[in-house]
Nucleic acid binder design. Structure first.
Lengths: 206, 206
DNA sequence: GTCTATAACCTGATAGAC
DNA sequence: GTCTATCAGGTTATAGAC
């Protein structure tokens, strides 16, 4: 009966690591506002005061987690977009497969990152050079050359939308039990092959 | 200098309507947890006590707004999916154009609805017959007939992802000033024609 | 470094005057 | 119906003992 304060993170970590690990989990799952510092402390199996000892405030702890998560979210495709030695078709396949693998491991990541960027916009997002990553990337150049009459963002929206949206919409399908975990994973595995095929069709289409 | 408590909603509404109108705006923009009942009262230009007088609690007020917003979100396409007299190709065009028009007027709606469903899942989502709307719809039947070897949800994910994702990801592009409001609207207008074309290509593709 | 206790503040909700 | 004042409980953060 006395197992209320059981830690849920690995016990053989430093206190600081236990806290940040717990913060990653709770912030990503519930978002900034719905997260209580007590939730994080309990998840880490430590005392609430230690959170403020290691990280001055909830806000500071959050900023650290958020920076990591943005790096994870945008860093997954940034190198692919920039690499001028990869063919356009191969880039598409890489973006899709990497995102599906990464988000499968971190299902709450997309809606967390996009929602928190919306809520903060100004401060957080421009830390990374997202603009140059997107606008001046080799990927966008290749799209412009292939289909000069269509804005390259159309294709980026298509690839990311088809890849990421199913994860964002998944809770809807969960509730109606239309799609259990295994079925969803199967679909997403299929999509690794299907999405690149469809996008290549768009690039060819009249 | 004494304009702090200025109401932002239309003044010629009943108090109850002013409150629910303010609640729609604030909840949709900030989500349940980040919303303070005081925010809603100020937005409505009324006193905090009146909120509890008309709606017993923050939770009750939220549930009312949420039910409306889910109806708005899913109701936009439900009739189209169900109508067995419409051709598959026409359904696709209708879904895309209706969603783009509706979300353009309510840009925060998709991430709000999907995020709150994720946070509540159990209670909220099954009130509407989403399951039968999706699984037993004429739309899904038509997809099965057209491409029996591909799971129909693949096409639904594609259509909704290409249509809705740009709105969800927009704050990212806002910050990097890659896309002002007019440019974004132009792109979304173009997508009303482009997305149906691309989807039809997928339906044909070997 | 880690804990308990508590300060300081915020938030949802209500009492009670008008 | 509407307001001011306030309560009760929760939340972040810190003081101080060990």
């Amino acid at each position: 009966m006395a197992m209320k304060k059981k830690a849920r993170t690995e016990p053989n970590l430093s206190t600081e690591e236990k806290i940040i690990e717990a913060a990653r989990k709770v912030f990503t799952k519930k978002g900034y506002s719905a997260t209580r510092t007590r939730d994080i402390a309990e998840e880490a199996g430590i005392n609430l005061a230690l959170l403020n000892y290691y990280f001055r405030s909830k806000q500071k702890l959050f900023e650290q987690v958020m920076a990591e998560k943005m790096h994870q979210f945008f860093g997954t495709i940034a190198p692919v977009l920039m690499d001028s030695t990869t063919k356009l078709e191969d880039k598409i396949t890489l973006i899709v497969t990497r995102y599906i693998d990464m988000i499968t491991e971190n299902p709450d990541l997309p809606i967390f990152v996009l929602n928190e960027i919306k809520n903060n916009s100004a401060r957080l997002a421009d830390r990374m050079h997202i603009k140059s990553i997107i606008i001046n990337s080799s990927f966008v150049q290749q799209l412009k050359e292939r289909r000069p009459e269509i804005h390259p963002l159309h294709f980026l929206f298509n690839i990311l939308g088809m890849t990421i949206f199913p994860f964002i919409a998944r809770p809807v399908f969960d509730v109606i039990d239309a799609l259990n975990e295994r079925e969803f994973k199967t679909l997403m595995e299929e999509r690794k092959k299907l999405i690149p095929t469809w996008v290549k069709g768009m690039l060819r289409a009249k």
